[in-house]
Design a protein around this nucleic acid. Structure first.
Lengths: 244, 244
DNA sequence: CGACCCCTTGAAATTGATCAAATGCCGTGG
DNA sequence: CCACGGCATTTGATCAATTTCAAGGGGTCG
């Protein structure tokens, strides 16, 4: 059986049949290495490909005419990225590697075949897409209605909880691998102000930092400050079509 | 053939077979009227139902502990709402009727059957879910990185373009049917500041208002001010499975 | 008529942005 | 090994956008 990073991720939620696994593995037949900082997809370029992120970290973002950047989402191994190209012929967002990464590009026609032949996987993708949607609405509420400190807190918790889904080594600390400017671009703040908030949270004993590594010292208070809810706990896949 | 508001919407993008149409119509077998202002779904309640909005307008929102509200999305006839309950057992957001509405609730098991039996419809739903995702990222960039005036401009254009998809009567003016406080809650501003921006845009000849009706007088400038892109023009459904 | 809601306007307060400069860190090449 | 350049972080001072607070006006519905 071929390995599939994406199948492994899905298998955390539901059992997959061998046929489904190998169909998913076919999406990852063409792994490609991309260097840190390199562009995977450029906004407005014609796109027909999607990607599975196999290794490393990536992000999607848009640039506004005045040069400011909004980071839309940070991605981790096993994430399915660039799904906007399923419906838009021109990329609505750019994708860039945050570290050296391995991505597996596949054409949307391959996705089509997968959806046709494996309705249960199709349903699963639909569900995960809805989970992404909720993640975005959470951040929308964060940007629209909470203070700078709350945004930093919830952003850290979000990254932390997402890393924990796949990486069992994560217990209370993690490598953020983002500059303060990037954090700011993700949560709608300047790097200067991110610095002040991080620094303040450190002094208050909420977090600590050591060469790029963040430790969450008081998660309860962080959740309270950030108005954060961990959505991962509440997922329910039971109603999906039973295994073929 | 039974009527289906949702099928009509999908049919704007792709041709549907009779079997697909009647399968979609079954989702709308139980229309229910809901009065303006009434709750359709309350956050944190256990949910197993989704809805097609057949008539009227609705919105989803969350309340933060300090009482402030973030409106996540405004919905129009033909929209598929509450899709978060496909994956979360407790509603992550509330749904409320903005006008008297007719909604068609259906159980997620009915959706499951639809996805199993009609892979092409499943694919289509997946695509539309990705389009929603992009709409959210657009607003995320708006909240995170643009001025109050830009947010108002892009919000108006977005509502306008979405109304135009279904309602042919819309050419340059439309009923917003939202209070200034609701606009503010959607784009992360106070009602006071929304008022100042709307008023300013009116004085500059960008828009005009008459008893709740908004007319867009200078769309080009509005698009520029709001950094707005109309995504509807760029949709591509050609690669979908061909008709069965 | 009164209650209520929404819109409007002004003045003061506050949050976070902007500008500017210093510090520290790390990899590279001499 | 050290010097250097370049990038990220840190800090201070000032500025500007938006919120907050407060009050008045207008329309509508019971």
């Amino acid at each position: 059986m071929a390995t599939s990073c994406f199948a492994d991720r899905l298998a955390k939620h539901v059992q997959l049949s061998d046929a489904e696994r190998s169909a998913l593995a076919r999406l990852e037949e063409n792994p490609r290495k991309v260097k840190r900082g390199a562009m995977i997809q450029r906004v407005n370029e014609t796109v027909t490909e999607l990607f599975v992120l196999r290794e490393g970290r990536a992000m999607s973002f848009v640039l506004l005419p005045d040069g400011s950047r909004q980071i839309l989402r940070v991605y981790f191994p096993g994430d399915f990225i660039g799904s906007a190209s399923t419906i838009y012929s021109k990329a609505p967002e750019s994708l860039v590697a945050l570290s050296d990464v391995v991505i597996c590009p596949f054409d949307k026609h391959a996705l089509r075949r997968l959806l046709e032949e494996h309705p249960r996987v199709a349903a699963l993708l639909f569900l995960l897409s809805n989970a992404e949607r909720v993640a975005l609405t959470d951040r929308l509420a964060s940007l629209g209605r909470t203070s700078a400190k709350a945004r930093v807190a919830s952003f850290l918790l979000d990254i932390f909880d997402r890393l924990r889904v796949t990486d069992d080594g994560v217990t209370d600390s993690f490598d953020l691998k983002l500059t303060q400017e990037e954090i700011g671009d993700a949560i709608g703040l300047t790097s200067v102000h991110v610095n002040r908030m991080v620094r303040q949270m450190e002094q208050e004993g909420l977090i600590s930092r050591a060469n790029g590594r963040i430790t969450l010292l008081d998660m309860e208070r962080l959740e309270e400050i950030g108005h954060y809810t961990n959505r991962h706990k509440d997922m329910d896949f039971d109603w999906l079509p039973s295994q073929p």
